[in-house]
């Protein structure tokens, strides 16, 4: 092994490394190219699931095709301020919500009927909160509180109990995340409410 003197020359080592890097990168690039469409499709379906979840329409154990069909038959899309909103009926929307969590950006969807001032559901697409603490925002115990939650007539819309007027429970042991979620949801709600009241979401 490596008896040959040329194996120890720098030029040979560098050449060898460059060659083998090119080969592996080439192979991976090809495979990436071949599966790109499928991965995008998976991400898209996942996203559609989350939108459906925000209005509690997500079927149990639905196949990808069923979910896509249901998604396209349920919603009309609406672009407002470069954000895509999903409209279920004239006053019911699924709006993307996002903001800073304790550790990173949290993104999700909120289903809301602006006329009856009712939140229909909440779902999170991505977050980087601490597993087992702040990470519990994606568990049913927290999310189910937002199924048919009637909001007060003016901000702040969401208030944690036991504060006066409280309508939601925070996660104990994860005050930072809970407060962050409340704050960005309130900001988002105010923004969308103003837009709706101003007639921008028709």
């Amino acid at each position: 092994m490596a008896k040959n003197k040329r194996h120890n020359r720098y030029s040979y080592s560098i050449g060898f490394m460059v060659l083998i890097t090119l080969i592996t990168i080439g192979a991976l690039a090809l495979i990436n190219e071949a599966t790109e469409a499928r991965i995008q499709q998976n991400i898209e379906v996942k996203n559609q699931e989350k939108v459906l979840e925000a209005v509690n329409l997500l079927p149990l154990n639905g196949t990808d095709q069923e979910i896509q069909a249901l998604f396209f038959s349920s919603f009309a899309t609406l672009i407002w301020n470069e954000t895509t909103l999903y409209q279920l009926d004239p006053s019911t929307f699924v709006v993307p919500v996002s903001g800073n969590g304790l550790w990173g950006t949290i993104e999700g969807y909120l289903g809301i009927n602006f006329e009856t001032r009712t939140v229909l559901g909440l779902s999170f697409v991505s977050h980087s909160e601490t597993p087992g603490l702040g990470g519990r925002i994606e568990e049913p115990e927290f999310l189910d509180q937002f199924d048919t939650l009637i909001l007060p007539t003016q901000p702040d819309y969401l208030i944690y109990r036991p504060k006066p007027g409280g309508n939601v429970d925070a996660i104990s042991g994860a005050t930072g995340t809970s407060n962050a979620v409340r704050n960005f949801l309130n900001e988002n709600l105010t923004r969308y409410y103003d837009a709706y009241a101003g007639g921008d979401l028709q």
């Binding site: 092994m1 490596a2 194996h7 120890n8 060898f16 490394m17 083998i20």
Partner: peptide
């Protein structure tokens, strides 16, 4: 590729 791999960069490879 062990015959062609230079010994001192084998970990990198």
């Amino acid at each position: 590729i062990r015959q062609w791999t230079p010994k001192h960069i084998r970990m990198m490879v």
